[in-house]
Design a protein around this nucleic acid. Structure first.
Lengths: 258, 258
DNA sequence: AAGTTTGTGTGAACAGTGTTAGCTTCGGTG
DNA sequence: CACCGAAGCTAACACTGTTCACACAAACTT
């Protein structure tokens, strides 16, 4: 049946890619299935609720078989981390490009709201990406996951860079920064691919500050701390967003009505 | 030997407290031992590395025996949470009272730095308190832990309240706050014991904003995110602290030299 | 002083877990 | 067709939380 569709119309793959053999295709499929089930368990039962045996059971196979796909449970988790990072990047970028290119303010607002929305909709996934590292269930991003994390960060930096190029906000002169802070910002720039001569350190200071506020706000909301009674802290997030973006010279607009 | 010291000089206990029977004392002792070992395992092997069996083994007993002290592993974890909250409260208060009472600015600086210092020194403990909730290894604070969390929050609110009473900073008028935000801040005030008529909502807005920045900064540092290369982000924390406290009308002073 | 209750801990057992080793079985290739 | 390697299974080891029935000793009562 499906066999006939195998070799014929793959067509559109890049010329350098050797046509994925049937073996590779089914391998890729089970690989995706494993990760899909793992994710569902993660969302339903928390990080500790992801078990190879349970995944295998649900797939109709046995746990040792999974070791043909992942070297360990940790490795599976790291692979999930990488997936989530790229998914999140995609969500943010999609929000960004859902508005006309010249509406820079609207785009950045949409992007940041998309970040929060994803975090709230996929709390366990967010926790895996931005929560505490742990020998089990997701070490600090390594290898593939680190790469995905870097690409995610770049997504945000791009937004910020637009504002910087447009000279939306006044950057504090470097003389206002303590030497230690200068040093730290320089290391940060280097680590993230900013060319330090290209972007003033004062601007980096502002970027990090805004990011911290956003990150802190979303963490608080996802991790449900500060005993904020129930539920959705949208108003507080919006207030924080407004403050942070105003500092960046972005004109705040309230979210579209539900 | 030590038997003689038993009943004699307990003396100074409050009159209403029935002298703790010998049984109660040894129970209290083993209870402390359990929690001490659990904590050491937590710090050494992470949240998932705390196991009843391992604790029991280290104590020279068997796992089921621990069920005379805790109904489950989760309960042990919650108990640890409570302990950590009160320990953290103590650390912050100690820092606060390490300076003369009239040095309000110095006191709040010391308190906030103490918060960060504790978090960095006891990362796993911090993660348990402020990290993502999880069915295992520490549900959202309940019962005793919730009480301890509330007392910790009160510690911070007290600091803030001093500044508010001294009218250090200008609070935005309530008319600047969106209705939704007003509602949320009101709920917050109620939930945390602030009397809403006693403290303007604009002030609460500032309090939460400052807390978010602090919390976000420390989370980022403890959870080691944003790929900030290595290590200690003190300069960045100090910069954030400076900004936040300036907004509160507190005169920033750099930390004492090492 | 003797008897009874209560608290504390044990051993065995159940149901899970990650992970390794050795074996089989089947798909794709020469 | 023969072969080789990938995929999967079974069995096993060493763990985990948790429950149950039982033993022992301390504490309280009569």
């Amino acid at each position: 049946m499906a066999k006939q569709a195998t070799s014929a119309q793959v067509g559109a793959s890049g010329s350098t890619a050797p046509p994925p053999s049937r073996r590779e295709r089914v391998r890729e499929a089970t690989l995706r299935e494993i990760k899909a089930i793992a994710r569902s368990h993660l969302a339903a039962r928390g990080p500790a609720g992801v078990s190879l045996r349970a995944i295998a059971r649900e797939m109709g196979m046995t746990a040792p078989g999974l070791y043909r796909y992942f070297g360990s449970l940790d490795e599976l988790m790291r692979s999930l981390q990488a997936d989530f990072f790229t998914e999140l990047s995609g969500v943010v970028q999609a929000a960004d490009s859902s508005l006309p290119p010249d509406d820079v303010d609207g785009r950045i607002l949409a992007s940041l709201r998309a970040f929060r929305a994803w975090a709230l909709a996929d709390r366990a996934e967010f926790a895996l990406l931005f929560g505490p590292p742990s020998p089990h269930h997701g070490t600090p991003a390594e290898g593939e996951a680190a790469e995905a994390a870097r690409r995610f960060a770049a997504t945000f930096f791009a937004l910020f860079d637009r504002l910087l190029r447009e000279e939306r906000f006044t950057v504090p002169p470097d003389t206002e920064l303590s030497p230690a802070l200068c040093h730290q910002l320089e290391a940060f720039a280097q680590h993230t691919g900013f060319r330090p001569d290209n972007v003033p350190k004062g601007a980096l200071r502002i970027l990090t500050s805004c990011w911290v506020r956003l990150y802190g706000m979303v963490c608080m909301e996802v991790f449900e701390h500060l005993a904020f009674a129930t539920g959705d802290l949208e108003a507080l997030f919006e207030a924080e967003l407004r403050d942070a973006l105003t500092r960046l010279g972005v004109e705040y607009r309230p979210p579209a009505a539900p």
